[in-house]
Each structure stands twice: as C-alpha cells, then as structure tokens.
C-alpha cells in the first residue's frame, strides 16, 4: 500500500516537474528580450528542478541517495540566483538595455510593448 502511494506521488512530482521544465524552455524561446527570458529560465531552475528531484527522492527510500539528492537540490537553489544576478549585472554594465513597458522617460527611449 505504502509502495503504491509512493510510486503515484513520485510520478505526479516527475510529471509536474517535466511540465514546468518544458514551460521554461518555451518561455526562453517566446519571450522578447534577455531580461524577460531570464525569468523563464528561473522557472526551470527553481521549482522544476525541485519537483523532479523530489520525485526521484520518493522513488528510492535509501538514506544516502536521498541525502545526495538534497545536496544537489540545495546547490541548484544556491547557484541559480547567483548566476542570474551575475548575468543581469554583466549585461547591464556592458550596456544592454532592458525592454520596458512604461513610456520611456529618457532620450531615445526603449521600445514599448511589441
């Protein structure tokens, strides 16, 4: 009985994770500029990874494997914000301007919603 519940919940977690992964991939193709694409990549980096790794944890109730999966999860959650912050900052410093929705308030402003 316990096994069936574990299997079903693991399958549900894996499916939700896969769906979120694909959503992030679609977002990275459909969004118009770098900064908005970064938000789409954020979806795959946070919740999708967490869901898939949780699904794997439920597959195998063996202590060492679960601890290693938790280490991978923590690493992803610590690394991904740092990497996206560094990316956004480097892009800003090197002069890439984000596309903004508001009417531009300075000379030769950005294009509005396309």
């Amino acid at each position: 009985m316990m096994d069936i519940i574990m299997n079903i919940s693991s399958a549900v977690f894996l499916l939700i994770g896969s769906f979120l992964c694909v959503s992030g991939g679609v977002g990275i193709l459909r969004f118009p500029d770098l900064f908005t694409r970064m938000h789409a990549a954020g979806v795959t980096d946070t919740l999708a990874s967490a869901m898939i790794l949780t699904g794997l944890m439920l597959q195998n109730p063996d202590g060492l494997v679960i601890l290693k999966l938790i280490i991978i999860l923590l690493m992803t959650l610590f690394i991904s914000p740092t990497a996206s912050h560094a990316l956004a900052r480097a892009a800003m410093i090197n002069g890439l301007k984000p596309m903004l929705d508001k009417p531009a308030d300075h000379e030769g402003g950005m294009s509005s919603k396309t």
Partner: peptide, 26 residues
C-alpha cells in the same frame, strides 16, 4: 537572493541601501 529566487523578479544591482529590480510584471 530571495528576490532573484522567486521567478518574475531579478535583482540586478545591490548598492548601499538600494536594490535595482527587474520584473516581468509590474
């Protein structure tokens, strides 16, 4: 880090008492 970790908002610059935030939705 919490701002960046929630999808939809990214902290671009942290300086002194101010954070520059880029958001997908206003």
């Amino acid at each position: 880090n919490s701002i960046t970790l929630t999808p939809g908002t990214v902290s671009v610059e942290l300086e002194g008492g101010k954070i520059t935030v880029h958001a997908l939705l206003s």
